[in-house]
Nucleic acid binder design. Structure first.
Lengths: 148, 148
DNA sequence: TGTCGAATCTTGACTCGTTCCAGATACGGG
DNA sequence: CCCGTATCTGGAACGAGTCAAGATTCGACA
């Protein structure tokens, strides 16, 4: 066991290097954890990272997640009523569905094409450079449970 | 000063009653504060409410905000990297622009019409009943400051 | 390959927003 | 006007996330 998690055992260091980040055990472990567990919260990521590097401090994980977010390797999402979560799918413009009942998160592609979301009807003079869409509802499981 | 805040000194109690809530001084004060200060955070609302009712405990304000949110009189919004904020514009489908620099929030109407946001390209079986859109960018002031 | 400076990690304390609890108080139906 | 219950007060507790100081490790360069 204790495989280097994701499917690119050697690719992670390279990704880090290309992003201009030093390659350290904590960073490889955290990046692998995010890629292996999309939409995971910080606690889960700390636990997952410790499977590879048992000694990582929570502080290091927070720091790494901050660095990865800053360099664009991961994205931080923060659904209301939940703690911060991270995902490794970046670059493609996609959004999320959040289940009201169990909090599960799933990816959805942009509703109206590629990036029309960036067009607000009246932008109040703001220079808009990004739009995030969060859908709320019930996941299939919870919907079934509620109907039953 | 110490006016009853909003423009409907007598309307607030009625709004509360119609929502099935008891009319108390803290509730009137908090509801008035939310209507007078759109997008304000909890601390500001506590301060604003205390202008009318100096003795309100922070706990009461939290409780009132919860009750108002539950009955649909106010909406709770929680921009990433910021604390909870509340607004009294409910019922109309509108979204928000958040300034990356100063955190200012402004309202924007739905980009593509009325409620097309509810249509995700692939909903993964979710029963979607709401969509929230958050635009990110710079407000006119911060944009000017950044360019200068 | 060995050395050195700077970035990164460890440990532990701390802040801040929010929630929980128990007892006192006020609203409003009868 | 009175009573039962929803609501409010005051204070303590909680958890996610941040700050700070010192030890460690990466990797550029000789």
């Amino acid at each position: 066991m204790t495989t280097t998690s994701a499917g690119h055992p050697e690719g992670l260091p390279q990704l880090l290097r290309e992003a201009g980040l030093r390659v350290t055990q904590p960073r490889v472990a955290v990046l692998g954890a995010v890629r292996a567990h999309p939409h995971a919260d910080t606690d889960s990521l700390i636990a997952a990272a410790r499977r590879d590097v048992p000694e990582v401090s929570h502080q290091a994980v927070y720091d790494v997640l901050g660095a990865l977010t800053r360099s664009g390797l991961v994205r931080r999402i923060q659904p209301p009523g939940s703690v911060a979560r991270y995902e490794a799918r970046v670059g493609d413009n996609h959004h999320h569905v959040v289940c009201r009942s169990c909090g599960t998160i799933a990816d959805v592609d942009c509703a109206v094409g590629h990036a029309p979301c960036l067009t607000a009807s009246d932008d109040h003079g703001f220079t808009i450079d990004e739009a995030e869409v969060v859908y709320r509802g019930l996941c299939p499981t919870c919907a079934a449970a509620a109907t039953a």
